[in-house]
Amino acid sequence: MLFAEAGLSDAAISSLFVVWSVTGFVVELPAGLWADVFSRRLLLVAAPLLAGTGFGLWAFAPSYPAFAAGFVLWGAGSALRSGALQALVYEALERSDAAHTYARLIGRSEAVALLGVVAASAVASPVLAVGGYRALGVASVVACAGCAVAGWFLPDERAGRAEDEVSFARVLREGVAQVRRVPAVRGALVLVAVLTGVTSLDEYVPLLVRSTGVASVWVPVLVLVVMVGDAVGGWLSGRGVRRLAPVVGAGAVLLAAGSVHQSVWGVPLVAAAFGAFRWSVTAADARLQDRVGDGARATVTSLAGFGTEAVSVAVFGGYAVGSAWAGPGVLVAVAAVPFAVVAVVVWVADRRG
Score class of each variant (00 low, 15 high):
Ser167Trp: 06
Ser125Leu: 14
Val253Phe: 11
Tyr64Leu: 14
Ala257Gln: 06
Gly137Leu: 02
Val142Ser: 03
Val264Pro: 02
Leu16Cys: 09
Ala129Asn: 03
Arg181Val: 00
Leu254Trp: 10
Val72Asp: 05
Leu88Ala: 07
Arg95Asn: 05
Val141Asn: 00
Leu236Pro: 09
Thr212Cys: 04
Gly56Trp: 03
Gly240Tyr: 07
Leu42Ser: 15
Ala162Met: 07
Val315Pro: 02
Phe71Met: 09
Asp285Val: 15
Trp74Pro: 02
Leu42Arg: 15
Ser121Pro: 01
Phe17Ala: 07
Ser96Leu: 10
Gly83Asp: 00
Ala284Arg: 08
Leu29Pro: 02
Ala103Tyr: 09
Val321Ser: 07
Ser82Val: 08
Ala257Glu: 01
Ala184Phe: 05
Ala252Trp: 08
Val185Ile: 13
Ala92Gln: 13
Val192Asn: 03
Ala135Lys: 03
Leu154Tyr: 05
Arg173Cys: 07
Ser109Met: 15
Arg186Gln: 03
Arg180Asp: 01
Gly275His: 06
Pro155Gly: 07
Trp74Asp: 09
Ala113Trp: 14
Val341Glu: 02
Gly70Arg: 07
Leu303Lys: 00
Val332Gly: 04
Ala193Cys: 04
Gly233Asp: 01
Trp152Phe: 14
Arg186Phe: 00
Arg41Gln: 11
Leu93Arg: 01
Glu165Pro: 01
Ser9Pro: 06
Val281Met: 13
Thr196Trp: 09
Leu43Asp: 01
Arg173Ile: 01
Asp202Trp: 15
Gly318Asp: 05
Asp97Trp: 05
Ala99Asp: 11
Ala148Pro: 00
Asp285Phe: 10
Ala66Leu: 01
Leu244Cys: 06
Ala257Lys: 09
Ala284Gly: 02
Ala286Thr: 10
Ser216Asn: 08
Leu254Glu: 04
Gly353Phe: 09
Val18Met: 11
Tyr319Trp: 14
Val247Pro: 12
Glu309Thr: 02
Phe38Ala: 15
Val112Tyr: 13
Asp156Trp: 12
Ala335Trp: 09
Val127Asn: 05
Ser302Phe: 06
Arg81Ser: 08
Ala193Leu: 01
Pro48Asn: 02
Ala296Ile: 12
Gly322Tyr: 07
Leu88Arg: 11
Arg104Val: 00
Glu94Cys: 09
Ala31Tyr: 10
Glu163Arg: 15
Ala250Pro: 04
Ala120Asn: 08
Phe316Arg: 07
Ala296Lys: 08
Pro48Tyr: 06
Thr308Met: 12
Leu93Cys: 05
Asp290Asn: 13
Val321Thr: 11
Val241Asp: 12
Gln178Lys: 01
Val241Lys: 10
Val313Met: 13
Trp218Ser: 10
Leu288Phe: 09
Leu254Lys: 06
Leu172Arg: 15
